Computed example of a mutant assay.
Amino acid sequence: MPVELKGSCHCGAVRFSLQSSSAVPYQLCVCSICRKVGGVGGSINLGGFHKTLKVEKGQEFIHIYNAVMNRDTPEEYVAHSERHFCSKCSAMLWVYDSEWPELVHPFASAIDSPLETPKMISCALMGSKPDYVRLPEGTKEVYDKYPPDSLEGWHKKHGLWVE
Score class of each variant (00 low, 15 high):
S21H: 01
K88V: 14
S8T: 07
D97F: 11
S128Q: 09
M92P: 07
L53T: 10
A124D: 04
I121F: 05
F49M: 07
Y143A: 00
K157N: 11
T117K: 15
T73D: 04
V55L: 11
G12V: 08
E163Y: 03
A91R: 05
K156A: 03
S98A: 15
L160H: 13
L93V: 04
I111E: 13
L115I: 06
S17G: 06
V142T: 15
C9A: 09
D131L: 12
D112M: 13
M126C: 06
S122F: 10
H10C: 09
E60L: 09
K157V: 00
E56P: 08
R35K: 03
D131H: 08
L46W: 05
R71D: 08
A91C: 12
M92F: 13
H84G: 05
I33W: 04
I121C: 04
I44M: 07
F107K: 07
C11G: 04
D149I: 00
N70Q: 04
G12N: 10
P118K: 13
H63Q: 14
L93E: 03
P136V: 06
Y26I: 06
K51M: 02
D131A: 15
V68F: 02
V95K: 13
Y143V: 00
C89I: 06
L160E: 10
L135H: 04
Y146T: 14
W100I: 11
